[in-house]
Simulated assay, not measured.
Amino acid sequence: MSRLTPESTSKSLQPQLLTAEAFAPYGEVIDRKQHTHFLINGGSTERYHQMANVETGPEDGRAIISIFRKPVANAFPFRVEMMEQHPFGSQAFIPLKGRPFLILVAASAQAVEQGDLALFISDGSQGVNYAAGTWHYPLITLEDDDELLVVDRQGDKDNCNEIQRPDSDVWIAYPSSLPS
């Protein structure tokens, strides 16, 4: 049995810089450089207010805060064999260690099946907030022992759908350059 390698595939994605405009079809970019602030606490603190909206969906939903820790970074290159979505709530990822990470998204299940994916790279200070229903790959870290703060939905309704693509011809390679 032959094993597929990136060289034998038809599609290898390269990441584009994460900007609010480019990411808008999939959700919101959480980036203080793209927001204004106002002073609070007697002028001692800058507040970057409402940088993303938490969607909790049906009445049983509530927002929760978690930390996702990846002891071992993704092994590159890897084949995109699955994607997931959260139909009832948004899901935000905010880097805690200032490290770049990759964001792989698709606008619809049909886009996932056709391989119409978009790959972004955070500069390590930017986070993302996937809109409810956005298809995405699980967390893609570039370094071992990375951590991201996650804000998402908890509730009684199942809020995770997956598409399995074991025959995928889409590969993700380690980025040739990292944002500075």
Rank of each mutant, 00 (worst) to 15 (best):
L4V: 06
T5G: 09
E7H: 08
S10C: 09
K11T: 14
K11L: 13
S12E: 10
Q14W: 01
Q14T: 14
Q14R: 12
P15R: 02
L17I: 09
T19A: 02
A22T: 02
A24P: 04
A24T: 13
E28W: 05
I30S: 04
D31F: 09
R32T: 14
R32A: 11
K33P: 01
Q34Y: 02
H35F: 13
T36F: 06
T36Q: 08
L39V: 12
N41C: 02
G43V: 13
G43F: 13
S44D: 06
S44R: 10
S44H: 09
T45R: 06
E46D: 11
R47A: 07
Y48W: 10
Y48N: 03
A52Q: 05
N53S: 01
E55H: 01
G57M: 12
P58V: 14
E59I: 07
D60R: 03
G61E: 00
R62V: 07
I65W: 02
I67E: 01
F68L: 15
A73M: 09
N74A: 10
F76C: 07
P77L: 01
R79G: 02
R79V: 02
V80N: 02
E81L: 09
E81S: 12
E81Q: 14
E84M: 04
P87A: 04
P87G: 03
G89H: 03
G89D: 00
Q91L: 07
Q91H: 09
F93L: 11
I94C: 05
P95M: 14
L96V: 07
G98I: 10
G98K: 05
R99K: 15
F101N: 13
L102Y: 11
V105I: 09
A106L: 07
A106D: 01
A111P: 11
A111Q: 09
E113D: 05
E113G: 01
E113M: 10
E113P: 01
Q114M: 12
Q114I: 07
G115P: 14
G115A: 14
D116I: 11
L119V: 10
L119E: 00
G124D: 06
G127A: 11
V128G: 03
A132H: 06
W135G: 04
H136P: 11
H136M: 07
H136V: 11
I140E: 01
T141K: 05
L142S: 05
L142N: 03
L142C: 08
E143G: 06
E143S: 13
V151I: 15
D152S: 06
R153H: 03
D158L: 14
N159Q: 04
N159L: 05
C160L: 13
Q164E: 15
R165L: 15
D167H: 12
D169A: 14
A173K: 11
P175R: 06
P175M: 05
L178N: 12
L178Y: 09
S180K: 14
